[in-house]
C-alpha cells in the first residue's frame, strides 16, 4: 500500500491530514475530463482573511486567495 508508506513523510513535511487530503483531492479533480474539470476546479475557490491576535490587538490581516 502506497499510502501506508507515505504517512510519515507528509507528516514529517509539516502537513496536517487536512492539507494532505486536499492535495489528494485536487489531484483527483485534475484527472477529470474537460467540461467537468474546469467546473470542479472553479467550484473550489478559497477566499478568506485571517488575523492573529496578540495581547488583545489584531495583527495585520492576511488574505488567503487560492483560485
Amino acid at each position: 500500500m502506497a499510502s501506508t508508506g507515505a504517512v510519515p513523510f507528509w507528516r514529517a513535511a509539516g502537513m496536517t491530514y487536512i492539507t494532505y487530503s486536499n492535495i489528494c483531492a485536487n489531484l483527483v479533480r485534475n484527472c477529470l475530463k474537460e467540461p467537468h474539470k474546469t467546473e470542479a476546479l472553479s467550484r473550489e475557490k478559497v477566499h478568506f482573511s485571517l488575523s492573529k491576535w496578540s495581547e488583545g490587538k489584531p495583527e495585520k490581516p492576511r488574505l488567503l486567495l487560492v483560485h
Binding site: T16, I18, T19, S21, N22, A25, N26, R43, E44, K45, V46, H47, F48, S49, L50, S51, K52, W53, E55, G56, K57, P58, P61, L63, L64, V66
Partner: peptide
C-alpha cells in the same frame, strides 16, 4: 479582547465549499 487568538472574516465572498473550509480549519 485578551482571549481572542484568531479572527477570520470574508468567508462568504464565494459560495462556501469544502476546500475553503478545510484550508481554514487547517489554519
Amino acid at each position: 479582547k485578551k482571549d481572542i487568538a484568531l479572527s477570520l472574516t470574508e468567508l462568504q465572498k464565494n459560495p462556501l465549499n469544502y476546500t475553503q473550509v478545510s484550508v481554514l480549519a487547517d489554519d
